[in-house]
C-alpha cells in the first residue's frame, strides 16, 4: 500500500514537471541554442550517410541563420541582461555559428570544434590512456 502511494506521488511529480516544461516559454536565445545543438548533433552523428547529412545540415543552417538574426535584432534580447544573454554574447563565433562560419569561410563544425577547444593539433598530440 505504502509503495503504491509512493509510486502515485512520483508519477504526479513527473506529470507536473512535464506540464511545467511544456508551458515554459523559450526566448530567441534559447531557441537559437536548441537549434545550434541540433545542427552540431547532425554534423557529429555517425549513423547518417553523407548525403543525408548534407541535406539536413543545409536546412538546419538556413534555419539557424534566421534564428541568429531574430536573436540579434529582437528588442527583448537587447534588454535582456540575464545569464543566458551574458553567456551568448561572450563568444560571437560560438553563439552565432552560422553567420560566423560563413563570414570566416569555414565549415560550421570546424569553427565549433575550434571554439570548444578541439583542434587538429590537439587531437594529433592526444594519447590514448587511462585516467
Amino acid at each position: 500500500m505504502h509503495r503504491w502511494m509512493l509510486m502515485c506521488a512520483v508519477a504526479t511529480a513527473a506529470l507536473a514537471g512535464s506540464f511545467l516544461a511544456e508551458t515554459a516559454v523559450a526566448g530567441p536565445l534559447e531557441n537559437l541554442e536548441r537549434e545550434r545543438a541540433r545542427l552540431v548533433l547532425t554534423l557529429l552523428d555517425p549513423a547518417i550517410d553523407a548525403d543525408t547529412r548534407h541535406t539536413e545540415t543545409d536546412r538546419a543552417r538556413r534555419r539557424l541563420v534566421d534564428l541568429e538574426r531574430v536573436a540579434l535584432r529582437d528588442p527583448a534580447v537587447r534588454g535582456d541582461t540575464g545569464p543566458v544573454a551574458r553567456r551568448a554574447f561572450a563568444d560571437y563565433d560560438l553563439t552565432f555559428l552560422a553567420h560566423a562560419s560563413i563570414e570566416k569561410g569555414v565549415m560550421p563544425l570546424d569553427l565549433w570544434l575550434e571554439r570548444v577547444g578541439v583542434t587538429t593539433a590537439r587531437l594529433m598530440a592526444a594519447r590514448v590512456g587511462r585516467r
Partner: peptide, 11 residues
C-alpha cells in the same frame, strides 16, 4: 551587432 550587420550580405 556591428559584426553581424557587416556579414549579412556575405551570408
Amino acid at each position: 551587432l556591428a559584426r553581424f550587420e557587416n556579414s549579412v550580405d556575405k551570408v
